[in-house]
């Protein structure tokens, strides 16, 4: 996207989650997306076996944010040998919760007429950033002050050629909202908020060399009452800024 325009939420490229050789010819690659507030698992399913596949179904193990299929996996026609089909599975966040390691890990079971197969994948936590995540400015200041220093995590993003406005626009496309911007001694400091689907708020401070997109390092500080999410949030923030 061009500088100054919102660019939409970041969607990672599809990767192979279940190789055919581990699943009697069934190959699944996929990614996760948030489109207009709806979380989706987007799948490419290929039949690399010599017989027809049918009767597909999917189930998730309990996971950190209660992700669960919001409906059945819709593959309405049998899949012939060498045939590929794209499927979109809308997800809800009201399923059973169990803390996973890493936090964004998802264990999946897929069944067809041949057998049941299992795989793990990791979702970008940014798909859980909700559209109403812009915190009130007064609440932000109070919350920032209130969260103890031990719950602050610091990170660095290297080789990021964005000025603060471009960074702010890009992040807003993924529901990371800028609340205030200040320039201090040649550095732009962006104060930002994120709200996860389970109601956890993350506060961010981004430092960018003012007016200098060739400067390549960004400093990120994250404050959260549930600091175990900070690492995952940072990974998503970095992916959004670099893509």
């Amino acid at each position: 996207g061009s500088v100054g325009m919102p660019t939409g939420a970041y969607i990672p490229p599809k990767t192979v989650w279940l190789p055919a050789m581990k699943a009697k010819g069934l190959e699944i690659s996929g990614t996760f997306a948030r489109r207009a507030g709806v979380i989706q698992m987007e799948l490419t399913i290929t039949n690399k076996a010599m017989s027809v596949m049918s009767d597909f179904a999917i189930q998730f193990n309990r996971n950190s944010f209660g992700l669960a299929p919001a409906g059945p996996l819709q593959i309405l026609t049998p899949l012939g040998p060498n045939q590929t089909i794209e499927a979109s599975l809308p997800l809800s966040t009201v399923g059973p919760v169990m803390k996973m390691e890493p936090l964004n890990n998802l264990q999946v079971a897929v069944k067809n007429n041949i057998d049941v197969f299992y795989f793990s994948c990791q979702y970008p936590i940014s798909m859980l950033f909700v559209e109403d995540g812009k915190m009130d400015r007064q609440v932000f200041l109070a919350t920032w002050k209130d969260i103890p220093n031990e719950h602050e995590s610091q990170f660095q993003i290297k080789d990021c050629h964005l000025n603060s406005d471009a960074a702010s626009n890009k992040l807003q496309g993924s529901n990371i909202f800028t609340i205030a911007k200040r320039t201090v001694e040649g550095q732009d400091m962006l104060y930002q908020s994120i709200k996860l689907t389970n109601g956890i708020w993350v506060l961010a401070e981004l430092r960018v060399q003012a007016g200098n997109p060739t400067y390549t390092d960004l400093e990120v500080s994250l404050k959260c009452r549930a600091p175990e999410v900070s690492q995952c949030v940072f990974q998503s923030l970095e992916a959004v800024l670099k893509n």
């Binding site: 200041l141 205030a180 201090v184 001694e185 400091m189 104060y191």
Partner: peptide, 20 residues
């Protein structure tokens, strides 16, 4: 008036973060 206060508070926050 409240807006001015908040603007100022963010400036103070940024300053304090830069010179702890």
């Amino acid at each position: 008036e409240l807006e001015d206060g908040l603007d100022e508070a963010f400036s103070r926050l940024a300053e304090s973060r830069n010179n702890p």
